[in-house]
Design a protein around this nucleic acid. Structure first.
Lengths: 125, 125
DNA sequence: TCCATATATAAATTATTCTTTATATATTAG
DNA sequence: CTAATATATAAAGAATAATTTATATATGGA
């Protein structure tokens, strides 16, 4: 019962649904998500932790970065994630998120600040 | 997006999940639900209105009573309701609710206060 | 008409959750 | 070792949601 309410509570917030929609395309580190949503980082961490607590997402540490991805471990969560993504297809919000993410990733590459470093220190590689 | 968060928010509360589980067996009036959950009536009305707002339940007025039932209008809500009921099968809480409901309905019948009245004034019939 | 019952709504309080700002921790580069 | 970066956590404040108590509305029966 508590697990159920925890899952539903995790899904009952707009920011968190936007994060799920972002992660539909694959894992992302916190700074990518922060840029995509255009929010301050502690706020993003707060919402990530709610989703992780509910085991809707999971994380993977790699060097300085923590990569978050959708947790497809059970059918129920998969179904919920699919439903959410399906229902957010043409939303203004999530398309804006995608745009900002792409711009952010583009800048990274261009400036060579992160992506052009040695493999070990790359965020997305 | 707002509809989604409204639905998930409605499901993110223990009391409301208990109500859903109760309604699995069929429609119930507010006083039945109040007795089953052993709560004060305005509290129950508050939670019913959250579920109704999310269109997870609907109501039907009949005389003095308002009967609430699960709203099976779309596949998504059906799926959520089924998942909730399935995951609450052997819970202590919901079995206690069932017991109190049965006791309450039994008393009604015995005392003849409600159930034995003329058809028009019966709550459950 | 008057009373009792079923339910909703409002107002006040309490509890939870979200947001912000500041700071701590860990990792890597230099 | 020091500085910089990525992320988490803590503390304070703001916003929401839940609970309680009191009252309003509607319906049916006497």
């Amino acid at each position: 019962m508590e697990e159920l309410t925890t899952i539903f509570k995790a899904l009952s917030d707009e920011t968190r649904l936007r994060i799920i929609k972002l992660l539909e395309q694959g894992e992302r580190c916190v700074c990518d998500i922060t840029a995509a949503l255009d929010m301050v980082q502690p706020k993003v961490s707060f919402h990530l932790s709610a989703l992780k607590e509910a085991e809707v997402i999971r994380d993977r540490k790699q060097g300085k970065w923590i990569h978050y991805s959708l947790n497809e471990k059970d059918l129920f969560r998969r179904m919920l994630i699919l439903s959410v993504c399906e229902r957010m297809q043409d939303g203004t919000l999530s398309s804006g998120d995608r745009k900002r993410l792409d711009a952010f990733l583009g800048n990274k590459e261009q400036s060579g600040k992160v992506v052009a470093l040695k493999p070990k220190s790359r965020c997305c590689g």
